[in-house]
Each structure stands twice: as C-alpha cells, then as structure tokens.
C-alpha cells in the first residue's frame, strides 16, 4: 500500500535555512544540505526547499545549493520559491530537483501550469497554494501570503489540476506557525475533490495533529518545518506513533 508521507520543509534565505512564524520574524536554523541529509537519515519521505527571498540575482545561489542537495540526498526533493517561467523550472530540474513548486506566478499567468506540464510532465509540477479564510470563504493569497486575490482556493485547485499540476501543496496561512493543528476541513475538501496527491501544510504542533490530517483530513502527505528544525518532534517517533494509529508509513 502507498504510505502517507512526512515532508520536512526547509525555508531558504541566502543559502541558509530559516523559519518564520506566520511568514514573518524569520529565525535561523542551519545549513540546508546538512539538515536535509539528517532528515533523510531519520526517515523523512521527501523534502521541500522553499527559497523565500528568491530574486533573479540570487538564482545562481539557489541553483548551486540545489546541485549540492542533489549530490547528497537519496530521497526525492522539491524546490520552490520565485519560480516564474518554464526556463526557471528547467534550470532547477537540470540542477537535480525532482519536482518544482510554483505559486504566485501561476496565479498571475495560469497558462504557465500547462506549459510546464507539457514540457516536463505533471509528475514534477507541485502547485503551491497559500490559503487564508476571509469573510467570503477561503481565498488564494500570493507573494508569500502578503497579497490577497479573489480566487476561491478549491476552484483554483481544480483549475491547476486540469491544467496539469501533478500535486497540490496546500498551506493554510491561518494555521501556519500556530502549532494548533492543520486545516483539516479545507484539506479534506481538496483531497476528496482532486485526483492528485494533496500535501497539507501549516499548523503542525503534535503527533496527533499528523494522525488527524491523515485520517480526518485525508491528506496524502503532511509538511512541517520548525517542528522538525528545532527537534520539537523527531521523525522516527512520529512514524512510530502514526504506525500505532494504523496509518501506513515507511519506517
């Protein structure tokens, strides 16, 4: 049986790992390659590296980092942050990324999703969606959560899958950094409506939160950052706990 995946996320700034609370107040948390290798040894199923300050000038720093990660890691990893074009995706894949996450650029220009899927295949395209609840329902936010859009999150999810996204990374901005648990209802709506895997992100604080997002939330994978970075939760213990709760995981 296909297992549920545990995905540590490493937020990268200038080649170093950071983590913010609600995407602000960044804290330093180590060398990405070293941290990534440690996670892989401890049983992480995949890793996500998000370049949170990606700019054109910093692109080469990121490419060099991706090359180092690819040489070291023996598990799959996704790279995202500031990906704006088919060429950006091509460079990251050529540097050794297994998948590339696209967020704001797809909102600005949805045809980008079709173009990437056509060129490199859906299996390497993760569509990242930052969601926040508003008076009128869950809306898509962009630019690291700073800018609201009018898009309904689930409608956007359906559209990007129709355009060729192979996986959805769904972050609840309302839950991110709170450690009060994942957005279960929202995640379940995505997981039930979409024919592709859904990664839940934002809000993990305890091992039970992971059980809840896999059972009630029906997520295919769950992502967390600071929880793992600061060793508040160890991956082997988490996987044992999931196993004890009858959730199939790789141990």
């Amino acid at each position: 049986m296909l297992t549920k995946r545990i995905i540590p996320c490493l937020d990268i700034k200038d080649g170093q790992t950071v983590k913010g609370v609600n995407f602000i107040n960044l804290r330093q948390a180590g060398d990405p390659v070293e941290l990534g290798a440690r996670y892989a040894r401890e049983g992480a199923d995949e890793l996500v590296f998000l370049d949170i300050t990606a700019t054109v000038e910093k692109r080469q720093t990121l490419i060099a980092l991706v090359e180092r990660i690819a040489a070291t890691l023996d598990i799959p990893f996704t790279v995202g942050g500031g990906v704006r074009s088919v060429e950006d995706v091509g460079m990251l894949l050529a540097a050794g990324a297994d998948k590339v996450a696209v967020n704001s650029a797809a909102v600005h220009k949805p045809e980008l999703v079709d173009a990437i899927a056509r060129e490199y295949g859906s299996q390497c395209l993760v569509l990242a969606i930052d969601a926040r609840r508003t008076d009128t329902g869950w809306r898509v936010f962009i630019h690291g959560g700073r800018t609201a859009t009018e898009r309904d999150v689930l409608a956007w999810g359906r559209e990007v899958v129709a355009r060729g996204a192979g996986e959805i990374l769904l972050t609840s901005m309302d839950h991110d950094g709170t450690k009060q648990g994942f957005a279960i209802e929202l995640t379940r709506r995505f997981a039930e409506a979409l024919p592709v895997p859904v990664i839940a992100s934002g809000g993990a604080g305890t091992m039970q939160h992971f059980v809840d997002i896999f059972t009630e939330g029906k997520a295919d994978a769950a992502l967390a950052a600071s929880l793992f970075h600061f060793r508040e939760l160890e991956i082997p213990a988490l996987k044992d706990y999931l196993h004890e709760n009858n959730i199939e995981v790789r141990r």
Partner: peptide, 30 residues
C-alpha cells in the same frame, strides 16, 4: 490518484536484484 507517487512496499521472491533487501521494504514510485 494518478500519478502513483510516493513510497510503496515491494513484494518479491528471492532474486539477485533484491539480495539483502526484505520483501515488504519501501521504495519510491512516480
């Protein structure tokens, strides 16, 4: 859900390709 993406258990009878690997071990598919 398609693609079949993630870690799944491998089932096999003894074969030189799988020497030293236990049937039921997980490998990554996409």
């Amino acid at each position: 859900k398609v693609p079949h993406m993630g870690w799944n258990a491998l089932h096999f009878e003894p074969h030189p390709l799988f020497a030293g690997v236990a049937s039921g071990a997980y490998v990554y598919f996409v």
